[in-house]
Write a protein that binds this DNA or RNA. Sequence first.
DNA 1: TTGTACGCGTTATCAC
DNA 2: GTGATAACGCGTACAA
Lengths: 345, 345
Amino acid sequence: MKFEAVTIKDIAKALGLSTSTVSRALRDSYEISPETKQAVLEYARQINYRPNPIALSLKEKRSRSIGVVVSEIANSFFSQAINGIESIAYTKGYHVIITQSLESYEREVMNMQFLSSRSVDGCLISVSSETNDFTHLSDLYQRGLPIVCFDRVVEDIACHKVSVDNVQGAYDATSHLIRSGFRRIAFVANAEVLSITRERQAGYRKALEDHGLSFDPSIVQYCTHGGMRLEEVETAVQGLLQQPLRPDAVFASSDKLTTNCMRYFRKEKIRVPEDMGVIGFSNLDLTDLLAPPLSVVRQPAYEMGRLAAELLIRVIESKKPETAFEKRVLPAELLVRESSLKGKR
Amino acid sequence: MKFEAVTIKDIAKALGLSTSTVSRALRDSYEISPETKQAVLEYARQINYRPNPIALSLKEKRSRSIGVVVSEIANSFFSQAINGIESIAYTKGYHVIITQSLESYEREVMNMQFLSSRSVDGCLISVSSETNDFTHLSDLYQRGLPIVCFDRVVEDIACHKVSVDNVQGAYDATSHLIRSGFRRIAFVANAEVLSITRERQAGYRKALEDHGLSFDPSIVQYCTHGGMRLEEVETAVQGLLQQPLRPDAVFASSDKLTTNCMRYFRKEKIRVPEDMGVIGFSNLDLTDLLAPPLSVVRQPAYEMGRLAAELLIRVIESKKPETAFEKRVLPAELLVRESSLKGKR
DNA sequence: TTGTACGCGTTATCAC
DNA sequence: GTGATAACGCGTACAA
């Protein structure tokens, strides 16, 4: 099947005009007579003419669309961020093309390739947990493709960055567990290479030390696939439970990690929070309905998306290449519920 | 900023060849000498040449990409379906462009317009809950754009359709509630115009009648925005609770409707399932962790996505326009947990 | 074996 | 006020 669209040529032929006249009439140029304009506009409306953006892209080397690469759209943080991105993009006249890497480096590269070659005007990216080579980004960036990193930020690239205050968020969560009476707090994290992992670990560690507890690497577990696979989390948690000094609480670094920990504890009849305190980074809007209600560190995902999109569009529309780059860090919010309250219930 | 890509021209100039020679060499044409080929390929690799898909699209009027329009990517059913779509698309060499309507008719039209004009080769769509005029689809369809409907299906359009057996799923859910001892079962539904709403209501009604209960329109509530807004669901549930004969169970028609009902019941201290049985269509993978664990009708979202994508690509790649259209209906799965078991706990 | 010319849809430039 | 032409990047029919 082939989709045949109406072109400027069809209008020109039908009205006995040249294509350039039609083009100008459609663009409401001052040098076209009112009658011609009228006729062209009328006919164009009739046959439902739409300019072909492909041709425009080819000519103008811009498409008024921006690309987004996230690890997983089913992740509530990312779907909220995307809503923020779209809200800005649409008011500024840009379309948004969403792609997901599913935490695969290969797919991330493929998506970036696809987007840049489809001549999006810029890209918003949160890298996959597998990615530790960033040449696909820096290459495109150096060739002039505007890029803004958000959430999972890449330090090596000179571009605007939007993230949440992971250090503070992790610090608050860990401190809260300590104040709540937990003493041996494990950390279940994303892939070790990710910025968010390093930052959250730093906050976790600082909280321990500020409260006179020692940091113990044997109760830190990394999940390379970001918890996308249940087995991965099970293995991690089993590793923790087998420690001679068993942890009494878990601080988890993402949605999937947190909920899969909960799932494992339920399966193994480990009571939360009596036997095991739980808190985690999560943007799920269901955490209040869980058993027990889950304490979370919540990121301002929608705001982060808006901010990232604003920065990107600013870069796209700026005449001269920017030299100074902002790193915007938004605050995370601690929502305390039952899962992290010792002795409650 | 402007993104400058390497073109065939650059290679031609650098090697002192014509563009056509370069083009042929790149496509490994038999009429090019091995040495020239070698040189071109080598140089192209060096400067990281990529053919410009925009130019190709303009020329060939196809892009090897397909568009997807769903109401909301944050909806687990749709994100799972999209994963299925992508799994097929990538193996067949197509890219996927994801867009969401957020249940807005205007945005749905805009998205379809965008996709078709960016010359996607075809579209997969699940219509928004606001949509009851389908001319934007039938217009594009008649002009030759391959379209496959999934989940929320449009009867008026002659195209392949993939859906779940909504009648059976609703019948099973309702029958289960009845067998479990509930007698006055309310139905909280999506917008009335949607195919899924009509079908689920039919199943609900048939189950009531088969078990000797009468259908009572006063305990059926429609939510135009599909439960995207909490107030909407609250209003609906309040409407139900104010009935002289108060319902003792709720059958909800989607993820958001089900969880927002649960949220309302919790807020109002209505115990589930003791005071109110609950079951709903949902593809959330967290329903087992809720309090109480939620009984659901689960759709084979991933499979539906795969099937829809397969059908679409078949249409795209078929030489002659298809005349016979399939309507594929997949079975839904009933997962019984605590929320629908009377007297348990 | 390689080069020239054309067309995809559009707009900018120059000519009339 | 309007028309012809070139250009964006690519592939291919035709010419050499």
